[in-house]
Design a protein around this nucleic acid. Structure first.
Ligand code: ZN
Ligand code: ZN
Ligand code: ZN
Ligand code: ZN
Lengths: 169, 169
DNA sequence: AGGGATATGTTATATTATAACATTACACAA
DNA sequence: TTGTGTAATGTTATAATATAACATATCCCT
């Protein structure tokens, strides 16, 4: 027997698993309308929350979006890589990196409970599809002209709409 | 001579620097009303955006909030530690951790551009103030009874209001 | 001064998330 | 079986976060 809530979680998880992209809660909600015509935001957030507490889904903090867990069994925290070009998300075992991070913050007496590690860049498929322009570190967002090229970290998240890759809603 | 925009950025930075907490954009906006009575959200977000692109402020992704940079000179990415008890933020040089993370994701051909590393836990001051109950890894949120104790990662961010520390708005 | 680019101001709205309360389902005792 | 308390789910409304779109001002260069 499955409670309605379990059904909802299963449906949400199925939707997340159909892609390796992260979906916003409201995108999930849209897709849920097929199976649950009268669904409202709290139901989605509750399902996501349950899935996350079971380690079956993760929130991608830098995208305000959610993704299915890709690990066989999600033991502790993992590293999420986010392709700036196609939006693909990959989950990597954090392993020793976790200890390294904890060690750094422990130098000021901080005790770690929960790690969030996300990396933006270019995925293997996109790297293969179009060669890096030069300089080696992966390519820029696209062929869009760059009148005043972004510097440092500004490359990433708060990117003006016009030069934002299409997969960002 | 300072343009109005530069003044705004300076004011925002001053506000962020008054605390070692992260402030939401709208909290910043409130405090800006003293100096800029007619300010609107876009001005705040523009100022924050400029500050961030110069590395003088950072967004704390897991808190949807902003904090002044604490580094002498913010070279690349850093590790932010967030105290679950008092909300204090500390910035740590990522150093070799950055390479470690890049190395992990590089195993699938991913090339890194921008790292986000945040750690939730308990800061030195809070650890000192009240002894860990047992188990060693830093203490729980407070003396609130725990009818069905949270497990795994669920300890952190999506914490129900009632048992959320006061510094979370 | 004119004209184009950039920065700033203003209004409105989009997007994300949760509070608050109503209702239902279920366990267990009376 | 019928009440009674508890937890899960549904529903409504609203809070909190962020950006679009366009108007106006400022600056730089000729
Ligand atoms: Zn996982
Ligand atoms: Zn890609
Ligand atoms: Zn910094
Ligand atoms: Zn603390």
């Amino acid at each position: 027997m499955t409670t309605p809530g379990e059904q909802m979680q299963a449906d949400v998880l199925a939707i997340l698993r159909r892609r390796n992209l992260a979906l916003s809660a409201y995108k999930v909600l849209e897709e849920l309308r097929d199976a649950h015509p009268k669904i409202a935001p709290p139901a989605v957030y509750r399902a996501l929350s349950s899935l996350m507490s079971k380690g079956q889904a993760h929130r991608v903090e830098t995208l305000k979006a959610y993704v299915a867990c890709q690990c066989k069994e999600h033991a502790r925290a993992s590293i999420l890589s986010i392709c700036e070009n196609c939006g693909a998300i990959e989950e990597h075992l954090a392993g020793e990196v976790l200890e390294a991070v904890s060690h750094v913050v422990a130098e000021t007496g901080f005790s770690s409970q929960h790690h969030v590690i996300e990396v933006h860049g270019i995925c293997a498929a996109c790297n293969a599809r179009m060669p890096a322009p030069e300089g080696g570190g992966g390519r820029r967002l696209s062929a869009i002209a760059d009148p005043m090229p972004p510097k440092l970290e500004a490359v990433c998240c708060p990117l003006p709409t016009a030069r934002r890759a299409a997969w960002r809603h």
